[in-house]
């Protein structure tokens, strides 16, 4: 399988993009120049600062630098580059203290400026660095996909396995329950389930609430597919063989039947991560998920609902681009996995 991903250049690239993203996320507090909640009230909607190697006179500087910006229109928050001020960028420089990997207290950041400000992707309405917030927000968006998929796939596989293997009344009951869940338009169900929880929760509680809501909606469809697969696998000779030497139902399900669904599950898992990322962003976008000051890609986009803000400060759309790239990578990867495991279509094209 890995071989065929390597052959598919786009999927290979996606895999690497995702790996890099997860690594960036783990070291978010080290890589980001500012903590997610530091506000620069004097520079709201600061435009992205470009990194320069050459100055106005065309002179080359080995150490890259950014120009200072000065606000020219405090009402519309418009800025102009102030070419007289140059701030060199330092690497492994001192900044706000943070805990690397949650363990080691350090003040070293990957890069930063000693004076002036560096906003590689601009700043939001409170003057918070968007790049830093995207990196911190990635912690939520990227982990919610994995944890949500893990939870709903565990439940879905076990329930679907039981349903398909035993059949009869249990099967009937489980299938009716999953039908009921699938009869709701998922966004409506998501909103209604959100109403079950109090509006004001701590950020950790909100995180787990979102995972629980999305998994509660997500397990049903999967359970049905697994059930269908189990129904056909159950009739295979090797299951009969296992039964003939007296293996228990539990052993047959977990050792013989479910492992045969792994390849499908892997594809389905890869392709369903985007759903969880989107679910979280949608809830946070509407103010029902992760709350300020904590960053999530969804709640960062809440300010983009105003088109006047978007037209004057287009860089506030950056989190949307981050969501797009992540989802694209997951889709391309899932697609390549599917091609690898189901080569029928590819053969037909050739």
């Amino acid at each position: 399988m890995i071989e065929s991903i390597k052959k598919n250049r786009l999927a290979f690239l996606s895999l690497h993009i995702l790996l890099v993203m997860y690594i960036l996320t783990i070291f978010a507090d080290f890589i980001s120049p500012y903590p997610y909640d530091v506000q620069h009230r004097d520079t709201p909607y600061h435009p992205p600062t470009q990194i320069h190697f050459f100055d106005q006179e065309g002179k080359f500087h080995l150490r890259p630098f950014v120009y200072g910006y000065k606000m020219v229109d405090p009402i519309n928050k418009l800025y102009e580059i102030d070419y007289s001020k140059k701030y060199p960028i330092y690497f492994f420089t001192y900044g706000e203290p943070h805990y690397l990997l949650g363990l080691f207290k350090t003040e070293i950041h990957l890069f930063g400026v000693k004076e002036g400000k560096i906003f590689l992707l601009g700043a939001d309405s409170l003057g918070r660095d968007i790049l830093s917030r995207i990196l911190y927000g990635a912690r939520i968006s990227l982990s919610i996909g994995l944890i949500g998929v893990l939870l709903s796939f565990t439940v879905g596989t076990i329930v679907g396995g039981i349903s398909g293997y035993f059949g009869g009344r249990i099967d009937n009951f489980i299938m009716r329950v999953s039908e009921i869940l699938m009869s709701f338009p998922s966004f409506y169900l998501m909103l209604a389930l959100r109403a079950v929880f109090p509006i004001d929760l701590s950020s950790t509680q909100v995180f787990f609430m979102i995972v629980v809501i999305l998994s509660f909606i997500g397990w049903a469809g999967l359970a049905r597919v697994v059930r269908g697969m189990v129904l056909s696998i159950r009739e295979m000779d090797y299951v009969l063989a296992a039964r003939s030497y007296g293996a228990s139902s539990f052993r047959i399900i977990t050792r013989h039947i479910i492992p045969n669904t792994y390849s499908y599950l892997l594809i389905a898992a890869t392709l369903s991560v985007p759903g969880y990322i989107l679910g979280e962003s949608a809830l946070s976008l509407l103010g029902l998920g992760i709350q300020e000051p904590y960053a999530s890609w969804g709640n960062m986009l809440a300010s983009a609902t105003s088109y006047t803000a978007v037209s004057s400060y287009p860089w506030i759309l950056a989190p949307g681009v981050a969501i797009f790239i992540t989802i694209l990578a997951f889709n391309l990867l899932g697609d390549a996995l599917r091609d690898a495991l189901d080569p029928k279509l590819r053969r037909l094209i050739k």
Binding site: V310, F324, L328, N331
Partner: peptide, 22 residues
């Protein structure tokens, strides 16, 4: 197809809204 499958609907909506206003 890959672009719009991966583009979150709400993000596309922001862009279209912006386009509509402009």
């Amino acid at each position: 197809s890959f672009t719009f499958m991966s583009m979150p609907g709400f993000f596309f909506a922001f862009l279209m809204l912006f386009f509509a206003v402009k």
